[in-house]
Simulated assay, not measured.
Amino acid sequence: MISSPSIWWNQECILELEPEIIDRLRDGNLKIYFSAGAQEKRFMVEDVKELAERLTLLKDSRLDIMLDIAEGENHISVVPAALSRSLRFVLKP
């Protein structure tokens, strides 16, 4: 579960690790649930959408990705909603 990630932090330094992370992700069957509240700052929502899309487009990947932009939720209120939704996504057969 990756909820409202602060990709913007420290000049987006986390993206420098993206190639290494992608190589590790390709090694297994993984489910990744991304979320953000629709009422969060626009850049937060756009950043998580962009990251989820890039991972979805990976060739030869065994990733199962879900992106959930939760209507009516903000940075704080999205957490309980995301927890419930992510568990249902990860635990579904």
Rank of each mutant, 00 (worst) to 15 (best):
A82Q: 07
A36C: 14
V79A: 11
L15V: 03
C13N: 06
I32S: 04
N29C: 11
G37T: 08
S86N: 05
M1V: 07
Y33D: 08
L83R: 05
S3Y: 08
K92E: 15
K92A: 14
I7Q: 00
I65W: 01
S4W: 03
Q11K: 15
E53T: 10
F34W: 05
D27M: 13
S86M: 09
E50F: 10
E40T: 07
T56L: 02
I69Y: 03
A38W: 06
A36Y: 03
E16G: 00
A38F: 09
D64C: 08
D60I: 03
V45R: 09
R85K: 15
V78Q: 02
M44L: 14
L67R: 01
I65H: 01
L87I: 12
P19Y: 03
F43I: 15
I7T: 03
N10G: 04
V48C: 01
A70L: 12
G28I: 03
I14C: 05
E40Q: 08
L67D: 01
F89D: 08
S6G: 10
A81Q: 09
L58F: 04
I22G: 10
H75Q: 11
L63V: 04
R85N: 15
R85L: 11
R85D: 11
V79S: 07
S6Q: 10
S6D: 11
N74A: 12
D60V: 02
M66K: 15
D68K: 05
S35Q: 05
L58P: 00
L55C: 07
L58R: 01
K59Y: 02
S84A: 12
A38H: 05
P5V: 13
Y33R: 06
L57I: 10
F89M: 09
P19K: 07
I7L: 14
L25A: 05
L15F: 12
F34N: 02
A70S: 11
E46M: 07
V48A: 02
E46C: 00
S4I: 05
Q39R: 11
D47K: 03
R42V: 12
E71I: 08
A82E: 09
E46W: 00
K49Y: 03
I21V: 15
S61M: 06
K92Y: 07
N29M: 06
I32E: 02
I21G: 04
D64G: 00
P19A: 10
R85H: 13
E40N: 11
E12P: 02
Q39H: 11
D64T: 14
N29G: 08
D47C: 02
P93D: 14
G72P: 01
L58K: 01
G28D: 10
E12R: 15
K59L: 08
S4G: 14
I14M: 12
E53K: 13
S77H: 01
E73N: 09
R24G: 06
F43E: 12
D68Q: 05
K92D: 13
L67G: 00
N10T: 07
G72C: 08
A70C: 10
V79P: 00
I22E: 11
S86A: 15
S6W: 02
S4F: 05
I7D: 00
A36H: 06
L30M: 10
M66G: 00
D64F: 06
D23Q: 15
L17M: 09
D23L: 12
I7V: 14
T56V: 01
E53D: 13
R24F: 05
I65K: 03
Y33H: 09
R24N: 10
R88W: 04
E18A: 13
